[in-house]
């Protein structure tokens, strides 16, 4: 039994929101997306995407507004399951952060942030048929969504496509076989 189920069981409240230790509501099955709630997490999402894709010689995900993309995706494109998983995942992560480091995620040290996300990745790693079953039953997990959307949002951002990858909107020619140059970057689009 996972923690959410355990809490829900104790309070007998599965299916409705309730106040968690951080004063934020758990979100388990309202009929529409609770956008105000997601807005409250925008800064957290910005910190998360910047841990997943940090600034290096090229800009990071936060500077590339990937958190805004994730917000828009969640608002307009995510299924109810995905949205619920995402909000609950943010909540859980924040609670784990407080439990582990006595600090909300945004205020953790870089090392602590990385540790929190790496633990999360480990705990949400299914593969093959297990992943398929899990996705089908519960929707994509919080971490898998967060990472996939961060990668997509970054690689399709102006920064990601033009400064981190190689973007050629009008190639004008097709050289079917070229020699890969040293440190040649991958093409941003197919």
């Amino acid at each position: 039994m996972n923690r959410r189920k355990a809490i829900g069981g104790i309070f007998g409240l599965v299916g409705v929101g309730f106040v968690s230790v951080l004063g934020a509501k758990y979100y388990i099955g309202n009929s529409s997306h609770d956008i105000e709630k997601l807005e409250g997490y925008l800064d957290l999402i910005a910190e998360l995407v910047d841990v997943i894709i940090p600034p290096t010689a090229s800009p990071g995900a936060k500077e590339s507004s990937v958190h805004h993309y994730i917000f828009d995706f969640m608002e307009d494109c995510a299924s109810r399951k995905e949205y619920t998983n995402f909000i609950n995942g943010l909540n859980d992560l924040q609670e784990t952060s407080v439990d582990s480091f006595n600090s909300v995620f945004e205020e953790c040290s870089t090392t602590q942030k990385i540790q929190l996300l790496e633990n999360l990745e480990e705990s949400s790693t299914y593969s093959g048929i297990l992943l398929k079953i899990n996705n089908k039953l519960r929707g994509r997990s919080f971490f898998n969504m967060l990472k996939a959307l961060t990668i997509e949002g970054y690689c399709t951002s102006s920064n990601g496509a033009t400064k981190h990858l190689a973007y050629l909107p009008v190639p004008g020619r097709y050289d079917a076989i070229t020699k890969l140059k040293v440190n040649q970057k991958a093409w941003a689009t197919k």
């Binding site: 997943i52 890969l180 970057k185 991958a186 093409w187």
Partner: peptide
Amino acid sequence: TTGIGVSLKEQLATP
């Protein structure tokens, strides 16, 4: 891809 952070970012840039 595997992992997060700088190593993930490098993986993304590599064909």
